[in-house]
Design a protein around this nucleic acid. Structure first.
Lengths: 233, 233
DNA sequence: GCGAAGCTTTGATCTTGGTCAAAGAAAGTT
DNA sequence: AACTTTCTTTGACCAAGATCAAAGCTTCGC
């Protein structure tokens, strides 16, 4: 079991909808678990035995094609909810992009707990609606944006979502952060090739908008120009 | 008010989660409404005053960019649910692609009804999760598929979703149907240009996979080859 | 520290799909 | 029916990004 009251994502995860006593009940069902970078939590087509809250780290949801390529359909951060409650198997593979800490529940026990807590279910619905909005924004990117715009969009999102876990205000943007993924994964998120990703990084670096002290670190030097690049035409 | 018991989508829409007497209560809140092709039901950024079930017809959700172009992020069919319950404004524009009939509820009355009917809310959650899966499939298409694959994918989806409204079994696929959208709209769905769409139509027509007796009609002559085309690599 | 294995970057070339332009076909109007 | 308007197709050309290939860098193991 987990001690929810001291959980760093207590107020941001779906658990925020619960009262203290209900939280304790849920806590008895959950279990903290570490997963290492690269480890896969859920395989597509699996009867999805678990759902989870992300406490720390970054995970990806991906659709893997027969020829070995993959499209990453979502990148999830601390306080996000993972898995497919109620019925259905998970249609995606869920893999850790960084070492991560998650709070797992068996699907069946979570399902029945949720059925008895409409507030939780309501929160879950709102989360899912938000997730849907995010997916559709991504669709617009894939449908309409150029390579440069895609890179800029990703960097802006990361600098927003990668804030130090716990209690940072949502207005905080990071000007320096570690990429939770390599170039290949960036290309799989953005629907580009690794070479194009690399060339675009070089390009906006040469324009002085960002710095890349090493392959994983990004420093945003000119946020307003980066944001302008991320916008469409 | 609407007479839900005779509604053609009664068993497929979210209303299917309700008992007869609850259904009557909801029916008092709903109102049938016709909208004409091209008419916009909801504008992006609006305080989204309504939610609705589609009874008949096809509607699109779109993100409209400053330069007048648009990305269509979803195409919705009979029995689908439209709108953003609980809070938030609608981030998309909702427009009829064909003449359509919908069952509208004011957001506030629907919200409070849903709060008191967990089954309905649960159904709504499952719908939204399904919708999310659909959006992510679309993302994979936009990220990885070629122009030909995109066209083939859309035609397969339409022949599946455009079944005669009411009570057709889900196994029915149409081999002849009317496109609910023009070439421009197809290009806005698939993230292509209208010229590319036209060329790809011509191509698979010349290969004998489909026939195009007029600009709106599609006849699938060789479904297995069309399905093969829709698959990746 | 040396070598192997991975990443990442850069370069050269090619392809797909975009852009620009114009002609054909339907549909709507007078 | 003639004319306008709108939608669709086709053609010629272009460009963004993909592909193929090779060279630099890191990282890791010994």
């Amino acid at each position: 079991m987990s001690d929810c009251s001291t959980c760093v994502v207590r107020n941001r995860a779906i658990c925020a909808s619960l009262e203290t006593d209900e939280l304790q009940l849920l806590g008895h069902l959950g279990r903290k678990r570490m997963i290492k970078r690269g480890e896969t939590l859920l395989w597509e087509g699996d009867p999805a035995p678990v759902v989870a809250n992300i406490i720390d780290g970054v995970l990806k949801l991906s659709v893997n094609l027969q020829d070995g390529r993959e499209q990453i359909v979502s990148v999830m951060y601390a306080s996000d909810f993972i898995g497919r409650p109620f019925g259905k198997e998970s249609p995606y593979r869920v893999t850790a992009m960084t070492d991560a800490e998650i709070c797992v529940f068996s699907r069946s026990s979570f399902d029945s707990f949720a059925k008895e807590h409409p507030d939780l279910q309501n929160k879950l619905l709102q989360r899912t609606l938000d997730e849907l909005d995010r997916a559709r924004e991504w669709m617009t990117m894939l449908g309409k944006k150029s390579a440069t715009e895609r890179i800029a969009t990703l960097l802006v999102e990361l600098s927003d979502r990668l804030t130090v876990d716990g209690c940072s205000p949502t207005t905080l943007y990071l000007d320096r952060f570690e990429l939770p993924m390599d170039r290949q994964q960036i290309s799989d998120i953005l629907g580009l090739t690794i070479e194009t990703v690399s060339r675009q990084f070089t390009r906006i670096r040469k324009e002085g908008i960002i710095e890349l002290p090493d392959r994983r670190t990004v420093i945003i030097k000119d946020r307003s120009r980066l944001k302008a690049l991320a916008e469409i035409a």
